[in-house]
Amino acid sequence: MAGPGPSRGPADAAYAGLVRPLLLPTWVVIGILMVVPVALMAVYSFLTKEFRGGVEWDFTLAAYDQFFVTRGLFGDEPAQIEWTYITIFARSIWQAALATGLCLLIGFPTAWFIATRPARTRGVWLFLITIPYWVNLLIRTVSLKFLIRETGPLNESLMAIGLIDSPLPLVNTNLAVQLGLFYSYLPFMVLPIYAAVERYNFALSEAAADLYASRWATLREIVLPVVRPGIVAGMILVFVPSLGAFLAPDLLGGAKTFMIGSLIDEQFKGSQGNWPFGAAVSMILMSMVMVVLLAYARAQGRAGR
């Protein structure tokens, strides 16, 4: 999240007098349709739920209470920590972290390989990596499900060549969800690392090699520290959307792989829903994401100084 960048002098301030009218549409649209709604969501998380879905304007902490505290089935036992939702959050963090790790494992070598191609072919490689990102996420997730399902082409071909005897039950497992997240956000990992490696000064590697460092020692001691900002950016770009993802867990997972996105989604469906609770869960998710982004912005600021 780079800053707006410096403005560069009088020749570049030709529209200085028009700044207000030019920015007005942005302020109005994003202000009314995003800032106000998020503030309203914060208010809703303190309201009382209505039975037909919706809210009553009575302020209460019930939604947060429901998230963190249990008082037994009939509400008459001493208050204890409610683990159901904390477990769902922990699982989401774990799944998102594993997907991020998987993306890094495949994404780094890919980014490095592309960045070390001749300038002529680099664009084509990058283009190949970015195309899938522009294909509808739903279609990509459905395609993945089609490929890895029990009687799908993956299992069929693995059985045909005799690698496995019975189909691997991949769908509805944690692994399937991780694969789905990995598949959804892989380009987000490759692109920032690519940008960092492209700026990397290979003379550093040559100096290390001259001093008898092995290839892998060079990678570990020289390359990784230098391109770290790209790696961190990639990890955030994968981790943050994975945390609140809905499609991959919903289509590829089952009841045991329930994640934050599905938990929120459920609260707004029909009369079974609980809007204040859904708003509270969204607030908790957004706070977590904001903490990650602010920590990143601060680290960036320190590195830039």
Binding site: T26, L33, V38, M41, Y44, G244, F268, L285, M290
Partner: peptide
């Protein structure tokens, strides 16, 4: 602030945008 505002839709998780927009 304007720069932050323009980029706000990229920072807020999609599902949170969905919830808040519906509530609005």
């Amino acid at each position: 602030a304007s720069f932050a505002l323009i980029n706000l839709p990229l920072m807020v998780p999609e599902i949170v945008i969905a919830v808040s927009t519906l509530i609005f």
